[in-house]
């Protein structure tokens, strides 16, 4: 028996997200009194792979092939399913990110294993296996019982702390017969966004709404983000009107994020907006309207005009950070 964790790599590197998954998986394995097997697919150097041991992986499987050239959900499903069978995985854990969402449901059918998508806590119990997940776009949570022998979970991003342990995990190499997988997707073009902190990776996010009044008012917001090492985001109307790029739109119909700190500046806090940001650990709101719903979601607030408050905030951060 084992807990199997699919850890994605980005150009051969892991991210905080990968270590979060392993930390989480190690705790689940503890509940089940079993070992933690990390599965990496695609070429990753050994010095990078061993890092997975530092967060609790007891074994690492590195599945590689020279021909892999596209993220094909079907092919990845088949690779993970094979290893899951071989490892007698009782629980399979993936991230609730783009690739986890693409693969986990397929895996669920392939292994006939119930799926708990976007869990944000450890299982509430393991017999029966009950997980805690968001429903109604964050307006409620459900206790979901997985009735099958094997459970598949996708972990909501940024919902679990890193836990370091010194583990000397052994690495097993597995060679994948990529050509035998009859891959049906083909990459035509890749457009990478470079240099910027990814919204979905960021610990701090500074976000502006219609209360920012005009795209010309963004420089102090961007400067605040820069100083804090934060990503920038916005509400839907702001991206609809082309004030900011669509990639920045957060909310039910945009990106769903869970940073440690979210600044909502000139954002009213409509339920559809909150659906994308309410899992943030802390929310700071700046708004002229003391009754704006965003203040019910926020821990810290300033009632005031963003145009006046932002420059002062920038100065304060500069000072306190000693810049």
């Amino acid at each position: 028996m084992s807990v199997l964790i699919f850890v994605e790599n980005w150009d051969g590197k892991f991210k905080k997200l990968s270590f979060e998954l392993i930390s989480y998986g190690a705790k689940v394995a503890e509940m089940l009194n079993t070992e933690v097997v990390a599965l990496s697919v695609g070429y990753v150097e050994e010095s990078e792979l061993v890092k997975l041991g530092n967060y609790g992986a007891t074994r690492i499987i590195s599945a590689v092939s020279d021909n892999m050239n596209v993220f094909d959900s079907q092919a990845y499903t088949s690779i993970i399913a094979d290893i899951a069978k071989q490892e007698h995985a009782k629980v399979i854990i993936l991230s609730n990110n783009n690739s986890g969402k693409a693969v986990a449901p397929r895996l669920s059918v392939s292994l006939k294993a119930g799926l708990g998508a976007g869990v944000s806590k450890l299982p509430l119990s393991i017999d029966p296996f009950i997980v805690y997940k968001k429903v109604y776009s964050g307006n409620a949570f459900s206790n979901l019982m997985i009735k099958t022998d094997i459970s598949i979970l996708t972990l909501a991003q940024n919902s679990f702390e890193l836990i370091e342990t010194a583990n000397n995990a052994g690495i097993t190499k597995v060679v994948i017969d990529w050509n035998g997988l009859s891959v049906k997707t083909k990459v035509i073009e890749v457009q990478k966004q470079s240099g910027k902190i990814l919204l979905t990776d960021a610990d701090v996010v500074v976000s502006g709404g219609r209360g920012m009044k005009s795209p010309d008012n963004w420089p102090p917001l961007a400067e605040l983000a820069d100083l804090l090492g934060a990503a920038t985001a916005c509400s839907r109307p702001v991206s609809d009107e082309g004030w900011r790029p669509h990639e920045e739109h957060t909310g039910q119909t945009g990106k769903i994020i869970a940073p440690n700190l979210y600044f909502a500046i000139g954002i009213s806090g409509a339920t559809q907006h909150l659906a994308g940001v309410s899992s943030s650990k802390f929310i700071v709101a700046i708004n002229t309207d003391k009754d704006a719903p965003i203040f019910s979601a926020a821990q810290y607030g300033i009632i005031g005009d963003a145009g006046k408050v932002l420059p002062k905030l920038v100065e304060a951060v500069k000072e306190l950070k000693g810049k």
Binding site: A140, N143, I302, A316
Partner: peptide, 26 residues
């Protein structure tokens, strides 16, 4: 079906918002 909702919970209410004077964002 492979899964079943056994119960719902409401989100934990957040602590009341702490306000800071707009003249003193520091």
């Amino acid at each position: 079906s492979l899964t079943e909702v056994v119960g719902y919970e409401m989100p934990k209410p957040r602590a009341a918002c702490k306000f800071v004077d707009s003249e003193n964002p520091r």
